[in-house]
């Protein structure tokens, strides 16, 4: 079908022969992908292999070279510590609970914004703020809002009668968990809404109108038309968000540093504390490496769920 010889442009033969090869998908494909592959090999692949090896050595931050190979000792030692299991549980719980909440809040928000009533632009600007402020800076803001004495949340809560006493947001185990999830949700729900909104915009209006004429309510429209049609975008969006939340250590690092009594660590923050702050690079790498299989499982499940609905 693609017959380059037929090009009517006044192009030189020599140039054509070079381009000619590029017309073949089997050549053009690899050529276009090559820069990405190269980048990833050098700056992800190599460090990754090194990190995997490090996780099986006794390397510390000061070791020159690669340290002594210790096999799976780092992992076995890890499984015996209580804090590892806490961190593992927290990682899963924080990610999943906040993903669900983000999804719910984001979906509702997308519908509200799609109404496009006058003033929506201003609302949208305000609502986008959590997503655009760098996470380190907003975590610090939340830390200030969760302060034991100057907490604005407690002040408002007490004055409208929602809160009694003086909840210690970052000092009580349950509340600290809630606080960390809350910050993650606060930060992520605008993104869920954007993804949905963008997806909804890509659906042809006739289809939606037809569905509406047929009496499909918002929920049915979302479930039967919107979600299946925007599944690819939704998939990438939710994966992005899952990975971001799961591998992020900023919120925990800045809010609680794993406290109280090591109950709020996630794998990323624990890996940082052990591998870098304490200098035990090998053991830190082992913790961080264990994030991978978990991520793979989550990705697999997400992929399956969405594929089933897909086209």
């Amino acid at each position: 079908m693609a017959r380059p010889v037929a090009i009517p442009d006044a192009r030189g033969r020599t140039a054509l022969s070079g381009l000619h090869l590029l017309e073949r998908p089997s050549v053009l494909g690899p050529v276009l992908v090559a820069p990405a592959i190269l980048y990833i090999l050098v700056l992800v692949g190599y460090p990754f292999v090194l990190a995997v090896y490090l996780s099986m050595t006794n390397t510390d931050v000061a070791t020159t070279g690669l340290g002594r190979f210790v096999g799976l000792d780092n992992f076995l030692a890890l499984f015996q510590t209580e804090v590892f299991w806490t961190a593992l549980r927290n990682t899963l719980m924080f990610t999943l609970v906040s993903a669900v909440l983000k999804g719910l809040l984001g979906t509702l928000l997308a519908f509200l914004l799609a109404e496009n009533l006058p003033g929506t632009r201003i609302f949208r600007f305000v609502i986008l703020l959590p997503w655009t402020i760098p996470i380190a800076l907003s975590s610090i803001t939340w830390k200030w809002m969760f302060d034991t004495q100057y907490s604005i949340i407690n002040w408002i809560g007490k004055n409208i009668g929602l809160i009694q006493g003086n909840p210690n947001w970052l000092g009580d185990q349950t509340l600290a968990v809630i606080s960390i999830i809350a910050v993650n949700v606060w930060r992520g729900f605008p993104f869920s809404a954007i993804i949905l909104l963008a997806g909804m915009a890509s659906i042809s209006q006739e289809v939606l109108d037809a569905a509406k004429v047929d009496g499909a309510g918002p929920v049915t429209r979302l479930r039967k038309i919107i979600v299946p049609m925007i599944a690819p975008i939704l998939f990438v969006g939710s994966l992005y968000d899952l990975v971001f939340t799961m591998t992020d250590m900023t919120v925990v690092y800045l809010l609680t540093l794993g406290g109280p009594a090591n109950t709020t660590h996630v794998l990323a923050s624990l890996a940082f504390l052990v591998g870098v702050q304490s200098g035990a690079l090998g053991r830190g790498a082992a913790i961080a490496l264990l994030l991978l299989p978990i991520l793979l499982i989550v990705v697999f499940i997400t992929l399956r769920t969405l594929r089933r609905r897909d086209i």
């Binding site: 992800v44 090194l50 591998t247």
Partner: peptide, 23 residues
């Protein structure tokens, strides 16, 4: 390749950053 490229997104920064320092 498609899957491979996406998988690299899953590699946590906490794991990479020290080896990456060397590069």
């Amino acid at each position: 390749l498609t899957i491979g490229i996406f998988m690299t997104y899953l590699v946590p920064t906490t794991l990479l950053f020290l080896p990456l320092v060397k590069v």
